[in-house]
C-alpha cells in the first residue's frame, strides 16, 4: 500500500461505470449468452433471411406455377418447367455448361499450379508476384471481359496485327466461339486457383522436403510424394473456386460467346428478359443453385479435416 501511495477510498468498492440504463441492460445480458449473441445477430440475420432465403423460396415457388402470359405466373401448380428440361435442347445446354466448367477448372489447375509453386518459392519476389495475382482478382470482371473482346474480335488487336504483319489475309474468327468463352473463363478465374494453392504451398515446412531428400527422394519423387499430396487441399479448394463460378457464369458467355454458346446462366436470364417464361427461368435457376451446392458438399466430403477454412 505504502509504495503506491493509494488514496484511502481506492480500496473501497469500485465506482460502477456507465449510466443506470446501460448498467441494467448489461446486468440482464451478462448471464444470458444466447440473448447476447442474438442481439448482435438479429439485424444481419433478418436482412439475410428477407433478402436471400425468402427470395430463393419465392423463386422455388414460382418454378412450380403455371406461366403467366406476359411474364410472371398464374395461380396453380405444375411441374412442367422441370419436365421441359428433358428436351434435348436444354439437356445440351446443361451438358455444355458442365463440360465448359470442367475444362475451365482443368486448364486453370494446369496453369495455376506451376504459377503458385513458383510464387511460393520466389523468395524476395514473392510479395510482388502475389500482388500481380491478386490485382486481377479485384479488377472489374466486366472491364476484364471487355478487354478480351478488344483483343479477340475480328477487328481486334490480335487480328489487326496478324493481318498487318502479312501472316493472314482474313481475320481468324476467335470471338463468339467455344474457344473465346473458355479463354475468357480461364482468364477470369485463374486467380481463384492460384491463391489457395499458393497458400497451401506456403505453409509447407521446407524441412519436410529436406527430410525427403535425406531419405533418398530425387526431385521428381520429392514433388510427387511430398509436395503434391501436401498441397492437395489447396488444389482441391482452387478447383472448387473455379468450378462454381464457371458453372454459374453469365457475363462471359453473354459477351464472348454469342447466341450459339448459350449456358445455363444465359438460359435463366433469357427466360426473364426475352422469353418471358418465369417458371422455367426459376426452375433453371433453382437447378443451377442445387448443382452448385452439391459441388460444395462433395468438396466438403473430399476435404481433409485439417484444411484451413476459406481462401
Amino acid at each position: 500500500m505504502t509504495a503506491l501511495d493509494m488514496p484511502p477510498q481506492a480500496a473501497g468498492p469500485r465506482s460502477a461505470p456507465g449510466n443506470g440504463l446501460r448498467r441494467r441492460a448489461l446486468a440482464w445480458l451478462a448471464p444470458r449468452p444466447q440473448a447476447q449473441a442474438w442481439t448482435l445477430l438479429a439485424p444481419g440475420t433478418v436482412w439475410m433471411l428477407g433478402f436471400f432465403l425468402v427470395p430463393v423460396i419465392v423463386m422455388c415457388a414460382y418454378s412450380v406455377m403455371p406461366r403467366g402470359e406476359y411474364g410472371g405466373v398464374d395461380p396453380g401448380f405444375t411441374i412442367e418447367a422441370y419436365t421441359r428440361f428433358l428436351h434435348p435442347v436444354y439437356l445440351t445446354i446443361l451438358e455444355r455448361t458442365f463440360v465448359l466448367a470442367v475444362a475451365t477448372t482443368v486448364l486453370s489447375a494446369l496453369a495455376g499450379y506451376p504459377v503458385a509453386y513458383t510464387i511460393a518459392r520466389s523468395g524476395r519476389w514473392k510479395s510482388l508476384l502475389l500482388f500481380l495475382v491478386v490485382l486481377p482478382f479485384w479488377t472489374s470482371f466486366l472491364v476484364r471481359t471487355f478487354a478480351m473482346i478488344f483483343l479477340m474480335r475480328d477487328t481486334g488487336l490480335i487480328n489487326s496485327w496478324l493481318i498487318a504483319a502479312g501472316l493472314r489475309q482474313e481475320p481468324i474468327p476467335m470471338l463468339y466461339t467455344p474457344f473465346s468463352v473458355l479463354a475468357g473463363l480461364v482468364y477470369g478465374y485463374l486467380p481463384f486457383m492460384v491463391l489457395p494453392i499458393y497458400a497451401s504451398l506456403e505453409k509447407l515446412d521446407p524441412a519436410l522436403l529436406e527430410a525427403a531428400e535425406v531419405l533418398g527422394a530425387r526431385p521428381a519423387a520429392r514433388f510427387r510424394r511430398v509436395t503434391l499430396p501436401l498441397s492437395a487441399p489447396g488444389l482441391i479448394a482452387g478447383c472448387l473456386l473455379v468450378f462454381i463460378p464457371s458453372l454459374g457464369s453469365y457475363l462471359t458467355s453473354d459477351l464472348l460467346g454469342g447466341a450459339k454458346e448459350l449456358l445455363i446462366g444465359n438460359l435463366v436470364q433469357n427466360q426473364f428478359s426475352t422469353a418471358r417464361n418465369w417458371p422455367f427461368g426459376s426452375a433453371a435457376s433453382f437447378i443451377l443453385m442445387i448443382v452448385v451446392l452439391a459441388a460444395v458438399l462433395v468438396y466438403l466430403r473430399l476435404r481433409p479435416p485439417d484444411t484451413v477454412r476459406g481462401w
Binding site: A11, R14, A16, P17, L26, A27, A30, P31
Partner: peptide, 9 residues
Amino acid sequence: NDKRPYERQ
C-alpha cells in the same frame, strides 16, 4: 457470483 469482472476488486 453475479458481479461482472469490472465490478470486482
